[in-house]
Amino acid sequence: MTIAHTYHRVSAPSPHPYGQKGESVIVMESCPITALGMRNILAQSCGFADGVQLVSNLSEIPGLMHHRPAKLLIMELCGEEESVLDGLRLIALCLEHWPSTSMIICTALDDPRVLQLLTASGIKGLVLKQEPAVALTQCVQQVISGRRSYSHKVRQLLSNQSSGGKALTARELDVLSYLFSGKSVTTAALMMHRDVRTVSTHKRNAMHKLGFQSDGELYLQGKWMAKTGPVFAR
């Protein structure tokens, strides 16, 4: 059974060395059934019987983190009316403001370009929803033990990617958002109060990190990252 289809009634969990009483976990997943399944995995296999908060949108996470930083944040890259670019921004925000929180991305997205960006971003774990439920269990256990964990399928998808990738910067994400919304580089520069040459450099760097060789590739193959809604069925 895959992570995306895991849902069963939780029996009383036995004591477990990974989760500790009083530690909080945030799970961001827009599908209620998948979210409940993930909470069950955390309770039964990872020892997090209490303190698991389920949210359905990225926008809910900063407020919760300001109130009480979580030990572990497990999230999809976007919720309803949110985009993958929004998810990449939130990852950067959390890593900057709450570096002690371990982040795991559990996603249906299997685009190697974006998976490489994620591994370069500083997250601790990466697993695909299409994988067996045990993949999430193993990822959580390894991350809580202080190790990075990329699932078997993720490693397979990344095997043909060049090593040494870099994460997109906040400015590069802003530039992509403007461009994908139909703005020109000149208009983006005006709206960002930046020189056109600076914005062009951000665009070029973003294209390089994503592996796009031309504007045509960027718009045809990358524009889905700014879409809201069911972006994984592109």
Rank of each mutant, 00 (worst) to 15 (best):
Q221F: 05
E76F: 11
P17E: 00
R194A: 11
Q141L: 13
S24T: 15
Y7I: 05
L118G: 11
M225E: 00
A49W: 01
L115I: 15
E29R: 07
G165M: 04
A170G: 03
G125L: 02
R147P: 02
V231K: 08
S24A: 14
L190T: 07
F212Q: 05
C31H: 11
A12D: 12
L218T: 10
L72Y: 04
I26T: 07
E29Y: 09
N57Y: 12
L136H: 14
L73D: 06
G47H: 01
C46I: 07
P13Q: 00
A35W: 04
V199Q: 00
I91P: 11
G19W: 00
H152N: 06
R148K: 12
K153W: 10
G87C: 05
C106L: 02
A70H: 12
R194F: 02
V114T: 15
M192N: 09
I104P: 09
H67F: 12
G211V: 03
P132I: 15
L173P: 06
G51V: 00
L73H: 07
L176V: 09
Q138A: 12
C31M: 06
A92H: 04
A12R: 14
L115F: 03
I104A: 06
R204P: 09
Q44M: 13
S11A: 11
S30T: 14
T137M: 15
G19V: 11
G51Y: 01
G216Q: 15
H5Q: 13
L136N: 06
V27S: 10
A170H: 10
I91C: 00
L126K: 05
P62D: 02
G222D: 09
S56E: 14
A35N: 04
R197H: 13
E60I: 03
M75D: 02
R234P: 02
G182I: 11
P13S: 03
Q116P: 03
